[in-house]
Amino acid sequence: MIGVMLLGLAGCASKFQRYSGPEVTRVVVFKQDRKMHLLSNESALKSYDIGLGFAPSGHKSVEGDGKTPEGQYRIDRRNPNSEFHLSIGISYPNTEDRARALAVGQRPGGDIFIHGRPRKNRKGGRDWTAGCIAVSNREIEEIYAMVRDGTPISIYP
């Protein structure tokens, strides 16, 4: 009987959390350190270990290069039905990114997100994405609740 009740409660768990703490005013990513910080003004609220694109060094310049972009962007969308549990979008490519790719006759790519891990990559290595920023599913649930669309994100080498 207790087992059935616990199983029923587990089915009620939601990946959508509520957050009522200080506003996240900026997201900062340090690629080399594999760290992401959620800031409220100058105070760090949370920090996360992250995974990056499968070719983590350098700025993303063209579609398919496996690099995570570097620069100043914004959180611009969210996907509650992501194949990566949950995801929040980064506004890559910007005008400069498009111009740089066009200058070499390529497309800049897109669909860069902060997201969780799909089942197939659950036990994969650290840098496995096509250019996104990966955290655990539990962590993306927290980040999804805390970070609002329009929040600036700075991604450093």
Rank of each mutant, 00 (worst) to 15 (best):
A99D: 13
I133L: 13
R98Y: 11
K67S: 07
S61E: 04
H37Y: 15
I143D: 03
G131V: 04
T95G: 09
V135A: 12
K35W: 10
L7A: 07
R34P: 08
G105T: 01
N79M: 01
G11F: 10
L102Y: 10
L52D: 04
A99H: 07
A134H: 08
G58V: 00
G11A: 10
I153K: 12
G124Q: 12
T95H: 11
Y19D: 07
G125T: 04
Q17Y: 10
K67M: 06
G8C: 12
L52T: 03
S47W: 06
K46A: 12
G131H: 04
I143S: 08
S57K: 07
I2P: 03
V147M: 08
R148Y: 00
Y73M: 03
C132D: 03
F54C: 09
G64C: 01
R18H: 13
K35R: 15
L102A: 15
P93W: 03
E42S: 13
P118N: 14
I133A: 14
R26P: 08
Y156G: 01
I2W: 13
E142D: 15
I112Y: 08
A101V: 03
I143Y: 02
I133F: 12
Y144I: 05
Q106Y: 01
H115C: 11
V24I: 14
S14W: 00
S154M: 07
Y144N: 05
S43K: 11
A13Y: 09
E42H: 11
M1K: 14
G124K: 15
N79V: 03
Q106I: 00
I153E: 06
H37D: 10
I155R: 11
S57F: 02
M146P: 00
T95C: 07
F16Y: 14
S14V: 05
D97H: 06
I88L: 06
L7K: 12
Y19F: 14
R78V: 14
M146A: 12
L38K: 13
K60H: 04
G109T: 06
I90T: 09
D33M: 15
R122W: 13
K15I: 14
W128R: 11
R122P: 01
D127K: 04
V28L: 12
S40P: 06
V104N: 09
P80N: 07
S20P: 03
M36L: 12
G3R: 15
A55I: 01
Y144Q: 05
R26A: 12
E42P: 06
D49N: 10
V28E: 10
A145E: 03
E142H: 11
K60Q: 06
F54D: 05
R107C: 01
Q17C: 10
A10Y: 14
L38A: 05
R26M: 08
M36A: 05
A99M: 04
P69C: 02
R148E: 13
I155Q: 04
S91R: 09
T68S: 09
N41Y: 15
L45P: 09
L39W: 09
I50A: 10
K31P: 05
M1V: 15
V28Q: 10
V147H: 08
I90G: 04
G109V: 03
G53P: 06
